[in-house]
Design a protein around this nucleic acid. Structure first.
Lengths: 338, 338
DNA sequence: CTGAAAGCGCTTACAG
DNA sequence: CTGAAAGCGCTTACAG
């Protein structure tokens, strides 16, 4: 990797001129500037010191990455809309890989020129967020909630809407209502299960464990589960799938078997993006605005970063956004003829 | 923004100790290290000089960002798999916003600590890639092709598979086969149209402009177009939609109208990810492995970066990956009764 | 428009 | 484990 001195020697000019050319100082001959830039790229120049300008916000996975999921894609889209506005860049980071042995999260961020972080959690790595908050690095968790007066987060409330959704199924006349929740617990899935239970209890209906299904949160999980559903005695006439991919997997597979939707099974899904419109019938779903979470997270971070660093207490930002129940084509009255 | 000197004065210790604490030098008392890290975060410390370690690869949009699209999400997922392996981080970048007035692409990258770039193009910004290649900054274009001996790219060949797909429709007995291509031309969509024309010509069938439809490449575009389709005289019995979202929009909307698929219309779509499995019937589609493009792009970049910077000619990396026709439920023989 | 020299902020042997 | 001082690579008035 070349240095300013080496490039200068190679081109027979002074280090000062090389520096000026790289930094686009106006007082450099255009021809010289071009020669320097080419030499710089040829030698894979990386400035070893000097005021490098980094305005990076990390989008950091504290645990396993879910990059590429509809939720994460929408989050990033939302964030990038606001970043463009404020002049930050977005750096995708795997925290466990990025942090050196014995290094703390803040030290890693400073080393990489990161000014603030949007954190993604898993059940196993929630404690990482507490450590980061303890160190005082500007950070906002998205899609998870904490009982803490130090951790900033933007999440959405799916409990009340889950209750509303299941109440809607009850109102349609369903007596046997199932719920498919992820095999891994997190605060969101717990909320959704609680909403389901509340709706049943409010309606004076029993909460039967045999209608609570643990299904892996991906399409194939829904497909596999749908095959089992067909053989179940007293099978539910309506199902609340708390994950978008599970919902779509179930929907396509039961249609494959030959069931009419919603006559043979009502399905309420969950949607982070526009997946509910891709199916036929379009999917009745609880909708979470992941782009908005991303935008809010960035605005929270932005206000943290502009906070005067004079020791005055920082604001605590904890927002819980509403979700919406959207009625589409996969819900209806139960098929009495069955 | 604090400096090492300021933090030192605040804590009543020497700048040397502050520096050592921030850089995690072993010979610092744990208690001192913690106090320094907290003070560093409180004052929003950003090192103004010093060997900051950046190993950033930019995922750079030369034109309008399509971040969040299935193709881009899959690309990023593919890249991130390889990056983890090599220890790079991924920086999302909007080139037009990031480059300062009079600054070149390489200068911007050096300023931001970027070591290499994966470039996304639009029809209007193909020339940007030529300028970047001219400057010699390590870069690989994804999802677009160039006739050039300087530009590295990883793309996929959709022409021969498009021909195969349309030939399949002909073999099923379709006489009136339409194609929906994006309203904006790019090398991919041109390839797909050419494949369509080749298949017709090979079969001795005329290429009729009235069956070539310009449809915006999003779901709503497909929906709108499907509504018009219903009123067309001599409407096609089969349709090749060259964009995933268009295909899904058409499919769900014609089902809404009450058509049976594939009896009333055969549809071949295009897929970058797993969208073909989300519909019912599952979508017959030409499949492009966007994750693989991402992985290949990163490996190309990695080999460019490890090239000895001694002036020996760099390798030119131009890979065209194959696409596959996957037969699913949306294609069949035309409905003779119609 | 360019170079020689002073300066910048951080890092690092050296001494304790 | 810490500090005073020399050193690093880059940048920048200053002089031409």
């Amino acid at each position: 990797m070349g240095s300013v001195r080496e490039i200068a020697k190679e081109l027979g000019i002074s280090p000062a001129t090389v520096s000026r050319a790289i930094n686009n100082h106006p007082a450099v001959a255009e021809k010289v500037r071009q020669r320097v830039v080419k030499a710089m790229n040829r030698s894979r120049y990386v400035p070893a010191v000097g005021k490098r300008e980094t305005m990076n916000i990390a989008f950091a996975y504290t645990g396993d990455s879910s990059l590429g999921s509809p939720f994460d894609a929408a989050l990033m889209q939302g964030m990038s809309q606001r970043m463009d506005q404020f002049g930050f860049d977005l750096l995708i980071l795997d925290v466990r890989r990025a942090v050196l042995p014995h290094e703390s999260f803040s030290q890693m961020c400073i080393r990489k020129g990161i000014r603030g972080a949007v954190l993604r959690t898993t059940t196993e790595t929630r404690h990482t967020c507490e450590e980061i908050a303890e160190e005082g690095f500007p950070a906002v968790v998205v899609g998870d909630r904490f009982i803490s007066d130090k951790i900033n987060f933007i999440a959405s409330d799916s409990q009340s809407t889950s209750r509303e959704a299941v109440a809607h199924l009850i109102q349609l006349g369903h007596q046997r209502i199932g719920i498919a929740i992820n095999v891994v617990d997190d605060s969101d899935h717990t909320d959704r299960l609680n909403g389901y239970k509340e709706a049943l209890t409010t309606a004076g209906m029993p909460v039967d464990e045999k209608y609570i299904y643990r299904v892996p949160a991906h399409r194939e999980g829904g497909v596999q589960w749908a095959r089992r559903l067909a053989t179940m005695p007293d099978r539910p006439t309506a199902l609340y799938c708390t994950d978008p991919m599970t919902a779509v997997g179930v929907l396509s597979e039961v249609q494959q078997i030959g069931w009419k939707i919603p006559d043979d099974l009502s399905i309420i899904g969950f949607d982070d993006s526009d997946i509910r419109f891709l199916t036929y019938p379009t999917l009745t779903a609880i909708c979470q605005d992941a782009q908005e979470i991303g935008r809010e997270a960035f605005e929270a971070l932005s206000s943290l970063l502009s906070w005067p660093g004079n020791g005055s207490a920082e604001p605590l930002i904890q927002r819980v956004l509403p979700t919406q129940l959207e009625l589409h084509g996969t819900t209806g009255a139960p098929n009495r003829g069955k």
